[in-house]
Simulated assay, not measured.
Amino acid sequence: MKLIVNGEPKEIAAATLEELLALMDYEGDWLATAVNGELVHREDRPAHSLNTDDRIEILSPMQGG
């Protein structure tokens, strides 16, 4: 399926947001995720279905300062 992940087009076979994160090797409870501009909470990721051309943002905390 064609998705836009963090602004980059990707072809990924993931049906849910949780599957996408696993396929892209994102792990941890500290991630923030949004699909089409709407925040998706951690507990909602397994049931959040993805559709072609969805825009997914995956944010992780930065270290340093």
Score class of each variant (00 low, 15 high):
A13K: 15
E18R: 11
S49R: 14
D44H: 12
I56H: 01
D54Q: 13
E57Y: 10
S49M: 11
P9W: 01
N36M: 10
L21A: 07
I58P: 00
E19I: 07
L3A: 07
A34G: 07
G64W: 10
M62H: 09
G65D: 06
E11K: 12
L23C: 06
A32D: 05
D54M: 02
T16R: 03
A34L: 05
I58H: 03
A15G: 13
P46S: 06
Q63A: 12
A22C: 06
E8Q: 14
Y26E: 04
A22D: 02
E27G: 08
L23W: 00
V35T: 00
G7Y: 03
N51R: 14
E38K: 15
D44A: 14
E19Y: 07
N6C: 03
E38G: 08
A14N: 07
K2Q: 14
S49H: 10
L20V: 05
P46F: 07
L17R: 00
H41Q: 08
G64Y: 05
L20M: 05
G65P: 07
M62Y: 07
E27K: 14
I12Q: 01
A34F: 12
A32S: 12
P61Q: 08
E38W: 10
A14E: 05
Q63L: 07
L17E: 02
D53E: 15
L59E: 05
A22I: 03
E43T: 13
I58F: 10
D44V: 04
N36L: 08
L31S: 11
V40W: 01
Q63F: 03
K10C: 09
Y26D: 02
V40S: 03
G65S: 11
T52F: 02
A14K: 01
Q63R: 13
E11V: 15
D29S: 15
N36W: 08
L17Y: 06
W30E: 09
S60K: 14
G65W: 07
P9L: 05
M1I: 06
I56G: 00
S60H: 10
R42L: 13
N36R: 11
E43L: 08
T33C: 15
E18M: 08
A14H: 09
I4V: 12
D25G: 06
G64S: 07
L39D: 02
L50W: 04
Y26Q: 00
